[in-house]
Nucleic acid binder design. Structure first.
Lengths: 187, 187
DNA sequence: TTCACTTTTTGACATCTGTCAAAAATCCTC
DNA sequence: GAGGATTTTTGACAGATGTCAAAAAGTGAA
């Protein structure tokens, strides 16, 4: 719980009242490797904070699993599309390691947002950060070559390579596993 | 101004006080075709609402212009990265048509957010919508073929093809102009 | 250690896309 | 409507990436 509050304080200041309310609203969840937090077709009604561990988001296309993002320590994770719209999720959230999460339901969060302007602000700022992070990934996906994307991964998030099977990294980079293997061989 | 308030009401309800405050905070800006709202290297300190007209965001790479998004009627536009972080913009915002915009400075917006919880909420909800819209574009960019992306553009946002030169559309789709031309020829 | 299973690498080949150059079509101004 | 500039299309070719198949390497359990 401390790691969650510490992380939240980086977005914006919180009053003791808001911190208490937040503390009381998140529940700890422990899930082991390869289990699912969410499966395709279900509505995601929770937002999770990842205290420890790793997970991936993937969907299925032509019988292949397309891993499009990873979550690690101090990330907020959910199926954003499903959580925001209330529609069934198209993606699966699967644990890559045994994981400690903190969970809050959408209803609970909505109540907090109604009560505390400062929590609304925090969430707004969190979305800003997540937005520009996604924007950068989008530009990389669309306008950089496979090799450039791999180099950037090496430079910026090398821990992904250490914790995730190569096939999933390839998918994350938007290339085939064979191509990723060849890029690595050239290094 | 009516079109702006109407648009804002779609995100969340607003009290008359908040609507008045918002009305007083946006200034009308009229700019003609090919002019710039923002150029590379400058800090973007304004958020704009596009009432009428069209513009594009592009940056320069190897002497080529990479158009990565378009804005049309009822879009909020800015260089999000620069506006949020306060860092110099890497992109240029250029008008594609004569345009009527409403402008609000970051300072003015910050003051409004401090005063009105409901405006903070509106912005948070706006970010949610923009986030999942971007997420969809990201998935398309990374995991769909050029032809699929073009078909989707035809199905979902055909007005882009009618209002934007093909070279810029190609860049928006992440392909060369020649490839786009050939995809069109096959249809 | 050995065996089975999973993950990663390598090879051969086909396809897609980009680049450069030129032709064709379109647009704009006078 | 003519002429020049811009935009779009077409052709030829090279390079990058995907797919399928098989080999090699790595992992874990008995």
């Amino acid at each position: 719980m401390d790691s969650l509050l510490n992380h939240l304080r980086q977005y914006s200041r919180l009053s003791p009242e808001a911190e208490t309310a937040l503390s009381n609203s998140f529940n700890q969840v422990t899930i082991s490797r390869n289990e699912y937090l969410l499966t395709e077709g279900r509505i995601c009604r929770h937002l999770y904070f990842l205290e420890k561990g790793a997970l991936r988001g993937y969907y299925t296309l032509d019988d292949k699993e397309i891993t499009h993002w990873f979550g690690f320590e101090n990330d907020f994770v959910t199926s954003f599309h499903s959580f925001i719209t209330g529609e069934p999720s198209v993606e699966n959230l699967q644990l890559l390691e045994g994981t400690v999460l903190w969970s809050i339901s959408k209803d609970t969060l909505t109540a907090l947002l109604g009560k505390f302007h400062e929590i609304e602000r925090l969430l707004r700022i969190a979305y800003e950060k997540y937005y520009i992070r996604l924007e950068e990934r989008f530009v990389n996906a669309q306008f950089k070559t496979a090799t450039e994307r791999y180099d950037q991964l090496l430079a910026q998030t090398p821990h992904i390579l250490e914790r995730v099977p190569l096939g999933q990294v390839a998918s994350y980079l938007g290339i085939s596993q064979e191509t990723l293997s060849r890029i690595r061989a050239r290094h």
